[in-house]
Computed example of a mutant assay.
Amino acid sequence: MKRIEMGGYYSGSINQGRLYFPKILDPKTIDILMTLSLIENQKYGVLELENTLAKDEVEPQKLTLYFEDGNYLLMLLDYDDEGYIDVRTLYNPDAPKGVFQNILGEPYGATSIVQDIELVKKCFIEFNQTGSVSRDLLN
């Protein structure tokens, strides 16, 4: 069972401060696409889709996008077969391995950061429709 809630924040500049996306319960694909299109022109922020009815330790619960200056870090909070947390991310084969890049002031492996908003859109739409994202997209 799924019940998706979308929300987050963004900023168009360092001095602007946080502006919040309106929370949307059970967003439609057009809501997601419009919000992700807005993100492309913003300095930084976070956007989340959360399945509020996900079964703990069984089903993916949250898809979180951290973005800054055209760089996107997408994380899916999932669980493995034994119920342990399994955070899945996109993979950037062109990024140098062993190198870290800051997103929102935190270091992450550069191979987890992409610049392809279309790939991000695919993941958001799939999570919204199914409550998960295929392992073909998120490792």
Score class of each variant (00 low, 15 high):
Y91C: 13
L137R: 09
Y79A: 12
I32K: 01
F21Q: 06
G7K: 07
V58M: 14
S112F: 12
L25G: 07
S37N: 15
T64H: 02
I32P: 00
D56P: 13
A95M: 08
Y72A: 10
Q115A: 10
S37Q: 14
D69S: 14
R135T: 07
Y44K: 14
I125R: 04
N71V: 13
L77P: 00
L49F: 13
D80M: 06
N102C: 10
E68D: 11
Y66R: 08
V114I: 10
L77T: 14
K62W: 08
L138R: 01
K121S: 13
Y44N: 09
E5K: 01
E68I: 07
N92T: 15
T35M: 03
Q115C: 08
L49D: 05
D116R: 05
I85G: 01
Y9G: 00
N71I: 09
K43V: 05
L33E: 15
L47H: 03
L76K: 12
N51W: 02
G45P: 11
L138M: 11
D86Q: 14
L137W: 06
K62P: 01
K97C: 07
Q16V: 06
P27N: 03
I113L: 05
A54T: 08
E68F: 03
I32E: 01
I103K: 03
P60K: 01
L33I: 08
R3Q: 12
L19T: 13
D26T: 13
Y9A: 01
P27A: 03
C123F: 03
